[in-house]
């Protein structure tokens, strides 16, 4: 498959960006992960940051004006290969509903499904980590079944507990740390999404395949 039209530009004096003008799709993102892996570890680059359909690389502005970085991005992208990226698989145990997922019934009402069907569909789908951002360890997941899409809450919560599994619009995600948030909380995991003492410090990495596994006694 041919990649979409790519643009290459500088962001300020210390970053170069590759952005693909196309609807977000997995094939393009796989090329971005491949490119990120090629570039990671290079001493002249301080950060290599995948976004949705884009990649930002950070360099030392005293050492480079970005011209060579842009040229290299362009050259590597022309040979980018989506096939040679091997994803990891991560299983997330979730206690759905009850105090752990106070909005499960709201999602059920909005989607016209029963709470058990919401759980079955949410835990029956395969998800992909497109990239991380927002908080340390927060993964932007692709793959939420369309039937589960639910608009964000009118009133965001001031504090969403760490580990909450949530649906916001057509996305699902897990809050690594307590934070304000407007997504619907349908469950909670005991896994630590971010632990600064671990290596790597985040449970999920760009490109990972993720599944949710319901734990028993979710109506307790």
């Amino acid at each position: 498959m041919k990649p979409g039209e790519a643009r290459f530009y500088l962001l300020g004096e210390r970053a170069a960006v590759l952005a693909v003008d196309a609807p977000a799709e997995l094939a393009c993102q796989r090329r971005i992960w491949w490119l990120a892996n090629q570039l990671r570890g290079r001493t002249e680059l301080t950060d290599v940051v995948p976004g949705m359909n884009n990649l930002t690389v950070v360099f030392d502005p005293l050492a480079s004006d970005g011209t060579t970085v842009l040229a290299e991005l362009e050259q590597l992208w022309s040979g980018a290969d989506e096939a040679s990226f091997t994803p990891r698989e991560v299983l997330i145990p979730v206690r759905y509903g009850g105090a752990d997922g106070p909005d499960l019934d709201d999602v059920a009402r909005h989607t016209g499904l029963s709470p058990d069907e919401v759980i079955a569909r949410h835990s029956g789908a395969d998800y992909i980590v497109f990239f991380l951002g927002f908080q340390p360890g927060f993964a932007y997941l692709g793959g939420l079944p369309e039937a589960l899409a639910t608009p964000r809450r009118a009133e965001p919560r001031l504090a969403v507990p760490a580990g909450s599994v949530a649906i916001g619009g057509s996305q699902t995600g897990i809050y690594p740390a307590a934070a304000p948030g407007g997504w619907h909380l349908i469950g909670r995991t005991a896994l630590a999404l971010f632990d600064p003492r671990r290596d790597p410090p985040t449970l999920l990495l760009p490109g990972d395949r993720v599944r949710f596994a319901p734990e028993e006694a979710h109506h307790a």
Partner: peptide, 10 residues
Amino acid sequence: RHGLRHLGIG
């Protein structure tokens, strides 16, 4: 901190 932005770490 540098080199950890891809993990969401600022």
